[in-house]
Design a protein around this nucleic acid. Structure first.
Lengths: 199, 199, 199, 199
DNA sequence: AAGTAAACGAGACGGTACGTCCTGTCTTCTT
DNA sequence: AAGAAGACAGGACGTACCGTCTCGTTTACTT
């Protein structure tokens, strides 16, 4: 099942790390998780999918969780500047709508869920997940601080609580699956936070 | 490692399901996760820990995730009546302080995290997890509705968003580990929700 | 390649060792070595050939060399009574002709050579090989002692030297391949030993 | 373990084969086998031991068996003139005592046994082994022919059988390990052959 | 003196086999 | 019939080597 065609021979890079091999492995990891059925996410499957020996993966990553998190970090939408619509409410709406839309994609959703599951028994993956998550938190923190500077948010509040409420809701729905990550939910979350931040 | 001492022989129950065997299995599952080191949480380990044949587990549960979630549901603090301190703020503080305290326990924390991880690749466990989580949500929902009835909370708000913010924060911190579930965090969360709910 | 047909389902034997599985493994080992081409003699090949999990082999044998030697011991021509033709010369001729004929078979030859090679880096296989070889030596020793009793051989000679000359020649030709194990060689060897043993 | 000290830098030889590299590889092969413990005899170990790239070995030898047999041929005691003590018995005693003494050395013994094992699955090594062995056979053949010329041995006998008896015994004891290659065995073997060769 | 070319140390690479761990099923014997 | 026990087919794990491939360096031999 699913070995890449032997025709696609990658050029060797001698004793230096082969960047195209690295790419192939990261793409293979994501491709496995984008497949609908119960494709098992195993090292052997990644290696076969990438047309690579297992040792080549182990040479550069300590675990499949680490591979996945690196792939995720590389594939995630750029950490461009936080949206600036002129109002805190508008910024939050824009940020959450976009973020929910991204996480709603079944392939992305499965990837994020497997990444989180891996992090629960793999300390290296957990560390990478924390780093991945921090980038997202920074974007929201920037929006909140801008709102504060515009006088739209109280200075007295602990922003970390607010941030954790927002991303907490996102991951909670993603992992438990009891409620969807709709656009309506995104705006409702934005409204809730605005109310909670009012000076 | 650590088969239970052979001295603790359980009485046989003949052709009827043996309740003490059921208890032993559930306790074994929790005991494995309460051990600090990287004790592997496997069916074989549960069976050995409980002093039970594997088939006996498979006879009654479809997967180790299901065992774990049944154990969790049984061990979790009773779903007694939601606290009633007379004010919404007081009720939320009481509920969150207690809930965070529970989840802060390393053994409980590990159990919850493994349960969540299992649910990501085990549909049966996921269903049980959803049920387990719903009981917690109900308790919070009761508190919020009581506050609403007392006029302390706006009637216009979607309580599910509020509930997901609260438990989302809890699980998010539990799973990612970027911030602790302190008593201070619990009260800050309560305060934030009160502000957001004000009519 | 070459998994055995799934149709040949073996009956389970519960918690007791399954004799038909043992047979299948031994036969698979010999079958692999009877194939002409460079079929690799690996644990995985044996398991696949026998339609067996690798663990089942490791449960009962410490190494592939041990599997092979057990198969060899079981398949080797019975340790029936040594030939008794009435004369030392006749007995030796009969014994060597039969033994050379057996070892001349390409399939047997390859098996013996691989067994000897395995024994060089596997102490367990070496021990089994020694035991296998001892049975052969006993047969020849019996013939020689009978000759001695009949007065056809000197009582002063160390029979172990004689035995090692005979089986040494056999293995040496088998392993080095510089000369064949013909019937003529067998009788020449018998004649040589008779001359050497004369009282 | 055991990369050669970087201080021992070999001079480069430009585009010509570097003789000191060749020596280093052959010595490394023998050194690995002279180590008591279960040092693995692998290409990688030889390369590391010699402080050489693997490709350098593959450039000049087809297999590790070939390396080993070249090393063996080079290190073996010179094929000087066969001993000449004046009598067949004396010559055989001298030759066998010396040969057994050489093979009795644990390091040499292990080397010979590994060489034989390699030859069983490596046609190139087998060919080299046959050549190595032929040199030994020639020495014995010379002694036997001299004895024949002196009238100490019958002209009617097939010397190849005699030679195979002698070296067969040597290799058989070496490979199986059921009996040692003592000085007493060497003289007993000489005596046996003399008796067998008597005109 | 500059340019060419092969040997060499190094090590990444695709791949095979290793020996171990665990899964979920099956069967026997015990209670 | 439930349960303890454990053999079994199978699949993935993480490691060790295999033999091949480049890369950059070193030196002898051109031109």
């Amino acid at each position: 099942m699913g070995r890449a065609p032997a025709s696609k021979r990658r050029p060797h890079s001698g004793p230096n790390r082969n960047e195209s091999v690295r790419q192939a492995i990261l793409e293979a990891a994501l491709r496995l998780l984008s497949r609908p059925g119960g494709t098992p996410f195993t090292m052997e499957a990644i290696a076969a999918q990438a047309g690579v020996g297992k040792q080549t993966i182990y040479r550069w990553w300590p675990s499949k969780g680490a591979v996945l998190l690196e792939a995720l970090a590389e594939a995630a939408p750029g950490d461009g500047p936080a949206p600036d619509t002129g109002s805190l409410r508008g910024d939050l709406h824009a940020l959450f709508i976009e973020t929910f839309r991204y996480a709603r994609d079944p392939s992305v959703g499965r990837t994020l869920r497997v990444a989180m599951a891996e992090a629960q028994h793999d300390a290296r993956a957990a560390e990478l997940l924390r780093r991945f998550i921090e980038r997202r938190r920074s974007a929201l923190r920037a929006v909140l601080e801008r709102g504060r500077n515009r006088g739209e948010a109280s200075r007295a509040l602990d922003l970390d609580i607010v941030i954790d409420e927002a991303f907490g809701l996102l991951w909670y729905r993603l992992l438990v699956g009891h409620a969807p990550l709709t656009r309506i939910a995104a705006t409702a979350l934005g409204d809730a936070l605005v109310r909670q931040l009012e000076p």
